[in-house]
Amino acid sequence: MSVTMTERAATHVGKALAQRGKGVGLRLGVRTAGCSGMAYRLEYVDDLADDDSVFESHGVKIVVDPKSLAYLDGTELDFVREGLNEGFKFNNPNVKDECGCGESFHV
């Protein structure tokens, strides 16, 4: 099982962690929400739980809880700029369908 991020995403997260002044990495998870069933959750990690899975890409740690890992296995996190908009893009091979606005998905 693995979760990765592109170099561009790692650079963005690394800068944000440095500005924040603390944190061991970025937590990636899923929660029940939206019209398709699940939504991604991102937050900084200050402390690791005993059952967390930790992956590293380009020097940045990605932390995933055990319940989310089954839905996120193989996911690559990217950071994209499209015109004036920028944000994270989730390349998740487990997704079978997404809602029209792209905020939620189901596997």
Rank of each mutant, 00 (worst) to 15 (best):
V3K: 03
T4E: 15
M5G: 03
T6P: 01
A9M: 02
A9E: 06
H12L: 07
V13G: 00
V13L: 01
G14R: 07
G14H: 06
K15N: 12
A16Q: 12
A18N: 04
A18F: 02
A18P: 01
Q19E: 08
R20L: 02
G21L: 10
V24T: 03
R27W: 04
G29L: 06
R31T: 08
R31S: 12
A33H: 04
G34E: 05
G34C: 06
M38P: 01
M38V: 03
A39I: 00
A39S: 13
A39F: 00
A39D: 07
R41P: 04
E43N: 11
L48A: 05
D51F: 13
D52F: 07
S57D: 06
S57I: 06
S57V: 09
V64C: 07
D65M: 08
K67Y: 15
L69A: 10
L69E: 08
D73R: 15
F79E: 09
V80S: 06
R81L: 08
E82Q: 10
N85H: 14
E86P: 00
E86S: 07
F88G: 01
F88C: 02
F90I: 00
N92A: 12
P93A: 09
V95D: 08
K96L: 07
G100W: 09
G102T: 04
H106A: 04
